[in-house]
């Protein structure tokens, strides 16, 4: 693999894996503790509709996916606040409708089928420089928000009602976290595809949770696990000429299974 590093696409792939790991570790932890998994899934599939729409309109697919997903993510975030008891069903509808819209737009736009496929399974080996810059930017914003509001985010994650009584801007944090997760999902789709993005967001934090005593440890451990999965998966994919996204997720899933069988470390 070391010889391959002379190629720019390989260096970009490594950077993408590392940046994704940072995003997945931090925001995936929020997805798991706030039970935003269905929201992340909804955003990922809605993104497909955005890509289709962008191709149909002839604008940048990245822009289309981010814009479309963000709009639907805000709608889903609002549904979670106002219709909490039925949020999962409503989000399920948005999820399916977004995906279906993507397929219809693809039908109406001949010749772009393969582009849409790359959003289904991702293509870490063709990640562009702009994608890396976007990921780095989002990671910087996420870290900034996390450090500025660390206590508020911990309280908001643990107990929303109590946090409200202490003056924590719970509604604002809810929307901020949902927006960060949504943009991250769209960017990570480039690397592992929309089918696998949920796994990369949820598996590392699910393993890390067992061994963590604080949200921040959970985030840190998740980042490291995510990096290990991504780099390990990438190496195996290159070595055996397999689809990188799928290998990354299989590596992650294997470790998750192993962690279920192992006794938990510091806790319980």
């Amino acid at each position: 693999m070391t010889d391959l590093l002379q190629f720019e696409f390989m260096r970009n792939a490594l950077w993408a894996a590392l940046l994704c790991s940072g995003l997945c570790g931090i925001l995936g932890t929020m997805v798991v503790v706030k039970r935003y998994v269905i929201l992340a899934g909804g955003v990922a599939h809605a993104a497909y509709g955005g890509v289709g729409l962008a191709l149909f309109l002839g604008i940048s697919p990245r822009l289309g996916a981010v814009g479309f997903s963000l709009a639907l993510a805000l709608l889903m975030a609002w549904v979670m606040l106002k219709k909490a008891s039925r949020a999962d069903a409503i989000i399920g509808v948005i999820w399916a409708a977004g995906m279906a819209a993507g397929i219809i737009f693809a039908d109406l736009t001949p010749g772009y089928g393969s582009d849409l496929m790359s959003y289904l399974f991702g293509s870490i080996l063709t990640v562009a420089r702009e994608d890396l810059l976007l990921m780095a930017g989002l990671l910087a914003v996420t870290l900034f928000v996390g450090m500025l509001w660390s206590r508020e985010i911990a309280a908001f994650s643990y107990d929303e009602d109590f946090a409200r009584t202490r003056g924590v801007p719970v509604t604002l944090l809810h929307f901020v976290v949902v927006v960060l997760i949504s943009v991250a999902v769209v960017l990570i789709i480039r690397v592992v595809g929309l089918i696998l993005v949920i796994a990369l967001l949820t598996i590392p934090p699910s393993v890390a949770e067992k061994y963590s005593r604080s949200l921040w440890t959970m985030m840190g451990v998740s980042c490291l696990l995510s990096a290990a999965f991504s780099l390990g998966g990438l190496a195996l994919a290159v070595r055996f000429n397999l689809t990188a996204g799928a290998v990354i997720i299989l590596v992650a899933s294997a470790v998750y299974l192993a962690s279920l069988l192992l006794p938990s470390g510091g806790r319980r």
Binding site: V33, A154, Y158, E209, R213, S214, L215, T217, M218, R267
Partner: peptide, 9 residues
């Protein structure tokens, strides 16, 4: 299962 200590709560 939330990772938090009694003191942090």
């Amino acid at each position: 299962d939330f990772p938090i200590t009694a003191l942090e709560v």
